[in-house]
Nucleic acid binder design. Structure first.
Lengths: 152, 152
DNA sequence: TAGCGTAATGAGAACCGCTTGCAACACAAA
DNA sequence: TTTGTGTTGCAAGCGGTTCTCATTACGCTA
């Protein structure tokens, strides 16, 4: 039997996730998530790119809403956020004795841990040799979420 | 014999590097580099932090000059720059295979080559596990000089 | 299915980190 | 000391992101 409101045949994980949190499904939110589903995983888009892609295909969603929706989708773990924006770039003294810097960076709080790994050093050396470059230094940045931020 | 200008007993690598490039040593540049030397390697500061640390210790260097000096020190390979965030955050559909980006970058002309290396990927995974972080993405940046620029 | 409370949107101002243009300054060579 | 030009400080500008607030509209309930 079909009740008047049962046109929602398959409430998506997104929709039910929203509902269970007192939030609402809107056309704008659908459009943003659909865009990512269409292009598939492994491709990164900036907020600006999401905006222009939607605009080009005739969908009008304001930039402010896109930013809000992206944050929401990240919090709901439908999207992955790359790059650390808070605090801007950082600098450290380059020690010429140990020309390798490996960092594990929490993208939420900025917490940074250093670590050493010889294979990474060798990979840098090998790549430089392969292309005929003269190696100066190599740095591995691992973007991750630290335990503290995971539990928030 | 001591000529009038020979009070410079030990022109530092920084100073001679500047000189050989038609650039000048200034109190501001000295102060910025000294700050990094005092705190030692392995500690990262943002431009803003450099500015406030200098201000607190009574040194007046404008923020604009600090940004210019940091860029200069990076180009001269005295400092290491972390997190070159290429214009804002990016988002991607969450998937469980972690993308990795490895780049060989010529610091003179900007030429960039990509390469793949599984050991690097594994090193990132291992480090994240060690510290209890949830891995998102790792990127290895190898700073080097390309063959073309070597012959100039 | 109409009414209602409140979440969400759009538009623009505000903000933040960073860069740039420009006039004044100061190294360093003559 | 003079002079040329690299450097600085200030303020304006810029790109990305967040905030404010009036308006809109989702979806619960009667």
């Amino acid at each position: 039997m079909i009740s008047p409101s049962s046109y929602r045949t398959h409430p998506s994980p997104f929709e039910s996730g929203l509902r269970s949190d007192g939030k609402r499904m809107t056309p704008q939110r659908k459009k943003v998530l659909s865009l990512f589903e269409e292009i598939g995983s492994g491709i990164h888009l900036s907020a600006e790119e999401v905006h222009s892609k939607l605009t080009i295909s005739g969908e009008k969603v304001s930039l402010a809403t896109i930013y809000r929706t992206l944050r929401l989708l990240v919090k709901m773990t439908f999207l992955n956020e790359l790059d650390l924006s808070e605090g801007g770039n950082r600098f450290e003294l380059l020690s010429h004795d140990h020309p390798d810097h490996h960092h594990l960076i929490c993208i939420r709080c900025g917490r940074t841990e250093e670590f050493e790994n010889n294979e990474v050093i060798n990979a840098g050396k090998a790549a430089a040799e392969n292309f005929g470059f003269k190696l100066l230094e190599s740095s591995l940045n691992v973007r991750a979420v630290c335990p503290m931020c995971l539990n928030k």
